[in-house]
Nucleic acid binder design. Structure first.
Lengths: 262, 262
DNA sequence: TACATACGTCTCTTGTAAGAGACAATCACT
DNA sequence: AGTGATTGTCTCTTACAAGAGACGTATGTA
């Protein structure tokens, strides 16, 4: 078998060079579709997850048959299927925090007119689990499920509160510390922020992800000291201090209401 | 090695006796969790899907690591995970019909006070994709994602409209024709119902799934002649003819609004 | 103290699925 | 028609995962 696999462009992957488990391929496929956020051709999908075409065809067929994926309108593209929606609804039903959190977020954004979000850690990454747009003409609506480096956000600081330094270091890559505009945060500063957020019980960041917004966040506890989620508001950066602190008060109140035994 | 075929204890399963693909096991696991609707121990899960314990442990670990499943509160039970929720939301986002359908259903049930549902074919089975409870004291709320034999429902008759007889026969098993109360429908009658529903553009069934309710349904088209979904109302069986036909009118109107180019 | 049942981890074997690649059929440009 | 890229299907090999089962531990109950 010659020196076979040659090159393997190896975009940084680890694989020593041999076969990959089908289930893992499937998980990659799902994640890939989640990032593309749209139906995609099977060929492109194979490229996207860096899997052999034949394997991809086989797996996709299984998944389509099972209803986890569906062929999209024109006929040779795939995207998520009804079954994933059903499973997702099951998750919501079985998860009090999420169910109530969604309501609170919707309510909060209607009440304040600002974009409001429910955020959680998702396998070590910051994830917007639910968001409600707000009524401003220019709203920065980040899609549900979007994953953002922890250091870029106020919520990230709260979600890590209570963790050991080593745990934090494990979760935050060097790239994560580089903001969208190129500035680089110092890890120590970030860790200091986390500690401070843990003590004060809220967190505000200004102009981190972009230059026009402030992010206000408050923790939701699943147990004393354990931050399970955060609620946050995304407001224009020139929001007055007075309004900001009033919003923070509201936010903390609502987040506390979500907390167990709150 | 010996005479091979070795009995195969075969506890009733069909398999000729050998190994099952991991991905299939996973699909069974997910389906099983969907039917149980609650967190379950890994041992029971293995029993439930009739898989070896060791295999089940391995697969569950992969799925938990990937976030498709989560360990439930007490620590040794599993249920659906956040990631499935995120994928489900992606599905909703990519699916106009579902998104608008959910709204219409919610609105319709608020407006009429009756239980309202959006239904679709899901891999050859009838599925309640979204339902909104209605305001009656005794409401028959079937869970989202519930799968019911096609012949039991009004929606089932509409969803099959336009299909060939052979296709229908393929989708309907003999068991499906037996109603919950033991009565058995004749296949020919069912097919006649389907044809009639296709022509009239709505369908009403009385006392099929249970003795106390009527089911009114109207088709949602994704293309001329192609029924993609149905909206339906579940009302008390003694609803007056007058109110029934007024509800049907409303229902057909809303369903038409959902249809493409409607 | 025994006895039974459940849990979680590990080892080893072998059936089988992941993968390479060939193939015909479209499609999209010249 | 000519060229190249892409699509869906199929075959064959072998690396590897599915599965059987043993093990140690943690329950519960007579």
């Amino acid at each position: 078998m010659q020196d076979g696999n040659a090159l393997t462009v190896s975009d940084g992957e680890k694989t020593p060079g041999s076969r990959e488990k089908g289930l893992n391929r499937v998980l990659e496929i799902l994640d890939f579709l989640h990032t593309t956020q749209r139906a995609i051709g099977i060929g492109d999908l194979a490229k996207g997850v860096n899997a052999p075409r034949s394997t991809t065809y086989t797996l996709v067929r299984s998944l389509v048959d099972a209803g986890l994926l569906e062929m999209a309108g024109d006929g040779n593209r795939v995207y998520f299927g009804k079954k994933l929606y059903l499973y997702g609804m099951d998750y919501v039903r079985g998860n009090d925090l999420l169910r109530r959190g969604r309501q609170e977020v919707d309510h909060l954004s209607r009440e304040t007119g600002e974009t409001s979000e429910l955020c959680m850690l998702q396998s070590g990454r910051y994830t917007i689990v639910h968001s409600s747009p707000g009524t401003r003409p220019f709203r920065i609506s980040s899609a549900t499920g979007l994953q953002i480096p922890l250091p870029w956000t106020a919520s990230g600081r709260l979600l890590l509160a209570g963790l050991e330094r080593v745990e934090i270091e494990a979760m935050v890559s060097d790239d994560d510390l580089v903001l969208p505009d190129g500035r680089k945060l110092r890890l120590d500063d970030f860790i200091a922020d986390i500690a401070k957020a843990g003590v004060t019980g809220y967190c505000v960041t200004s102009g981190l992800v972009d230059a026009y917004t402030k992010c206000l966040a408050a923790p939701v506890f699943s147990a004393p000291g354990k931050v399970e989620a955060t609620m946050c508001l995304v407001v224009p950066i020139d929001t007055t201090d007075e309004r900001t602190s009033s919003l923070i008060g509201l936010l903390r109140d609502r987040a506390a209401r979500l907390s167990i035994a709150g």
